[in-house]
């Protein structure tokens, strides 16, 4: 069992309680301990409460999303207070310290494809970059990322693997042909096992598994350096961790005046 420290990391909106950056409380065993003179918001507490017992336990399951979930948000839409849940260990024990360090490393979410369709121009440069990098020629049907367009409504949706924590495609595959890359966490296809049943594509909530000649084509993050992002001018595709500065990609210029 771990004890937890829940820290206010950022206040993106307006919280009139107020909760301030750096405020924290701890979950020790079955008790919540709030430092003297501090308080905890009922809204946020109600949202996070079910998570605490789970986060207190050590889980070692393949594909589990819980270890890499560290951030939660207050449900007050005006407040947008972001909390970070840290596991704390007993300071007196060296062994536990070492465990804590490993856990923190392990629990840091893997960088993934971040998609912001609100700024996607629909140019499909990502498709070209992908097929050129993978195949040496240009063809959208070879691309692992594809943009779905609704021209009348100006909607452009890049469909690319988001490296879900709890990947439904992996679970859905009856042949066990999909697995995680140990380093990049990308979904990797074992083509020899794949029978082309498309169960993975049906399971994908983002419509991001595309098919070419009865075989799925899935983003493999180009081994951790996705090339499509180099050709995305607006930052609709970025690579990194949500809430942090992107490791790769971003807008090349201001695309919209006024805010």
């Amino acid at each position: 069992m771990f004890d937890l420290r829940v820290v206010v990391e950022e206040v993106r909106g307006f919280c009139d309680l107020p909760m301030r950056s750096g405020d924290y409380f701890e979950v020790r065993g079955g008790r919540i301990i709030v430092p003297e003179g501090k308080h905890i918001c009922l809204w946020a507490l109600s949202a996070m409460l079910p998570m605490f017992p789970a986060k207190q336990r050590k889980i070692d399951e393949e594909n589990d999303w819980l270890p890499s979930t560290q951030h939660m948000c207050c449900p007050d839409p005006n407040g947008m207070v972001i909390y970070r849940i840290d596991r704390i260990a007993d300071d007196s024990s060296n062994t536990q310290q070492a465990v804590k360090k490993v856990e923190q490393e392990r629990n840091k979410p893997f960088p993934r494809m971040l998609v912001d369709e609100k700024v996607c121009t629909g140019c499909r440069s990502c498709e070209l970059a992908c097929s050129f990098h993978k195949k040496g020629f240009f063809l959208a049907e070879e691309a692992r990322v594809r943009v779905m367009k609704d021209e009348e409504n100006g909607l452009d949706r890049p469909q690319v693997c988001r490296q879900c924590g709890n990947a439904r495609c992996v679970q859905a595959c009856p042949e066990g042909a999909l697995e995680r890359h140990p380093e990049t966490h990308a979904i990797i296809l074992n083509a020899e096992l794949c029978v082309g049943c498309a169960a993975c594509a049906e399971a994908c909530p983002f419509g991001s598994i595309h098919f070419k000649e009865q075989q799925p084509v899935i983003c493999d993050l180009c081994g951790g350096d996705p090339r499509c992002i180099e050709r995305c001018a607006t930052g609709a595709l970025r690579f990194g961790r949500a809430g942090e500065a992107a490791l790769k990609g971003g807008a090349r210029a201001v695309m919209k005046g006024g805010q």
Binding site: C120, T121, G122, C123, S125, A233, T234, M255, K256, G258
Partner: peptide, 22 residues
């Protein structure tokens, strides 16, 4: 300038273009 500040929702591009001038 006024259009960009008021009614513009986002930049758009032709096929494969990294200069989203539309």
């Amino acid at each position: 300038e006024f259009l960009a500040e008021t009614v513009k929702k986002k930049s758009k591009s032709c096929f494969g273009c990294v200069i989203p001038c539309s």
